[in-house]
Design a protein around this nucleic acid. Sequence first.
DNA 1: ATGTGTGAAAGGATTCACAGCT
DNA 2: AGCTGTGAATCCTTTCACACAT
Lengths: 216, 216
Amino acid sequence: MSQRLSLYLRQLQALRDEGCATVSSRQLARSLDVSAAQVRKDLAFFGQFGLPGVGYQVDPLIARIRRILGTHRLRRAAIVGVGHLGRALIGYPGFDEQGFRIAALFDADPALHGRTFGGVAVRPVEDIEATVARERIEIAILAVPAEVAQDVADRVVRAGVGGILNFAPTRIVVPPTVGLAAVDLSIQLEQITHQLAALEADDDDDPGDPRSDAAP
Amino acid sequence: MSQRLSLYLRQLQALRDEGCATVSSRQLARSLDVSAAQVRKDLAFFGQFGLPGVGYQVDPLIARIRRILGTHRLRRAAIVGVGHLGRALIGYPGFDEQGFRIAALFDADPALHGRTFGGVAVRPVEDIEATVARERIEIAILAVPAEVAQDVADRVVRAGVGGILNFAPTRIVVPPTVGLAAVDLSIQLEQITHQLAALEADDDDDPGDPRSDAAP
DNA sequence: ATGTGTGAAAGGATTCACAGCT
DNA sequence: AGCTGTGAATCCTTTCACACAT
């Protein structure tokens, strides 16, 4: 459900930039694909916020959601792995906008040590413990090969980060006190081919098959 | 739910590589964080597959899931946008393994036209229609700036792709017949800070707050 | 009039528990 | 004995509908 909070936040920020001061649950629901009732239930869960007959005040609601999502203050993150993916993440515009600051970069390749990207110098992975403490890093973003992902995860956890965003195509395990999110590209692509396959099953009708996925 | 099918598939492939010929729902559930009953329900939905007293045969089950997910045959994909993110995706090892082939690259920057990455030449975006048809591209992966994402999406849809994987940090809309999946990095990061914020609320106990998220 | 907040109803998903097969 | 397939029960999420506030 907190995913929907992020969506609301984006929409509210867009509305604010257009100069809207208030918004109704119906407006907010339109264009996001959720119901107005859903919006009200979600927002009401954190306390009263709407004005009956008027709607929600955009600015206070943005502030409230950012507080709930924990982005009301700046969050310092490190990227481990400065290959193409790491460099793509450094330049990602959404981070700054949403209150994230890339404050450290790490890579195993000595050729990269000392080079800077986006004004941040690349350090060896051996420096993770010291740098995470000194720079007050709260989040580690793993853009490393699958083979070393668990090792790196263990290391950043020891160093004291509170959360990990994992891009390596492998499951990693962390203590329950550490937040974890993962982006698995193969799963996303299979989501799409799954839809393609369902359509194909409709086309070349094949009643001999035991049971079709798209049937019920 | 089809996300879980992808997870089962990964686990089954790992088991096969270890030489296992059969697997029980309990084994499969262990290490993935789902219940054994969940595994059985999911697999039974597509027909009978297990042998009571034995379990599931690994190889036939892999074949069956790949068919359901639509990766039983090779799927040809194009990447639009050959910046850092696009290049990271070209080298992503999971694509080959799971039956995807990057068969075309497009970019708006003329300086890139004709350069090859992973053996594939970069073409101008104006060539999308012709190339998608000629190369029988089924999936478009958008690694472009948010400002042009919708335009590019419209173009690849016109060109006839069946599905889109969107990395641009913006919602795009496509006809209902076109599959769509999106990777929004900010949402993933906010997922993590949300967990951080919940823990912080526990620490510095703040009973003055109307209602805490982590309370119930 | 217009729009929130919220119980009640509906709908899905997950787990339980066990009959039946090997 | 061991394990699947599946109805029943449970839990969680979403929608409905309306009293109430501005």
